[in-house]
């Protein structure tokens, strides 16, 4: 594994140790993944299709249970007892907003998590207003989510997670299917959010723009970990793992 200098003096907020995950059809998606993410870091997770990026994201919040290995989020080891608390403190934004947006209105959508987490009504209303303001969707409360454009749906998907202010954001393909303008809006949003982030993406230019550090994952294994500049300018490393230099570095 290629390693570069990263400040590892603090306790990591996210730690995976030798995690294996196999799908019911026998496909081994994660094969001994170990990684650490530190507070306030914005970290990219890059790799080709089928590398295990999305699986890793769902494993972190206990949607998929690893066959072996240990997942630790904000000091809590993931297990059925801690899963709920971990989901409250770490939010996952899915790749396809249509998977994430299922409520009749934008308000219900953003309020879904706070209500399920047991916040009182007045606080839920405040949380919804704040989250919608963060993603620039104020005034959309009464609208149906599927009447929105893809860019608006993406931002709404962020709001559904931001509403309960998780300390860690896990974001799966934030720029997928977006036109250049909406992609830029998403990048600006990611840069403006203060949370610790793990961003799974193919969009290496986005990683260069937003993240300080990145992991390269291929065939279920972390093959490189280091600062974005050194990883994303290593053409040999990228080519051997189904990637290529970011457009801005070509």
């Amino acid at each position: 594994m290629q390693m570069t200098d990263v400040d590892r003096t603090n306790t990591p907020v996210l730690r995976l140790k030798d995690v294996y995950y196999t799908y019911p059809d026998g496909v081994e998606s994660l094969r001994g993944v170990s990684l650490e993410v530190y507070r306030d870091e914005k970290v990219g997770l890059v790799g080709p299709n089928g590398a295990g990026k999305s699986t890793l994201m769902t494993v972190v919040i206990g949607i998929r249970i690893p066959r072996t290995g240990e997942v630790e989020v904000l000091g809590q080891v993931l297990n059925p007892k801690t899963r709920r608390e971990i989901r409250r403190r770490a939010g996952l934004v899915f790749q396809d907003p249509d998977d994430q947006l299922f409520c009749p209105t934008v308000f219900d959508e953003v309020a879904f998590a706070p209500i399920n987490m047991g916040y009182p009504e007045e606080q839920v209303t405040e949380m919804v207003a704040r989250a919608l303001k963060q993603v620039d969707l104020e005034g959309y409360e009464r609208r149906s989510s599927f009447h929105l454009s893809i860019g608006e749906r993406k931002r709404l998907a962020f709001a559904t997670v931001l509403s309960y202010s998780p300390e860690i954001l896990l974001i799966d393909e934030p720029s997928a299917n977006l036109d250049p303008q909406h992609r830029r809006q998403t990048i600006n949003l990611l840069k403006s959010l203060p949370q610790t982030m793990l961003i799974a993406t193919h969009d290496l230019d986005l990683v260069l723009d937003v993240c300080e550090r990145c992991f390269v994952i291929n065939r279920g294994r972390i093959v490189a970990d280091g600062d974005v500049e050194s990883i994303l300018t290593d053409e040999q490393l990228l080519l051997s793992n189904g990637l290529e230099l970011p457009l801005s570095r070509q």
């Binding site: 919040i61 989901r87 998977d99 299922f102 998590a113």
Partner: peptide
């Protein structure tokens, strides 16, 4: 899709 939607719901405390 229904599996993914259910996962998204669980991720938000459902």
């Amino acid at each position: 899709r229904s599996t993914r939607v259910y996962q998204a719901m669980c991720a938000r405390g459902f």
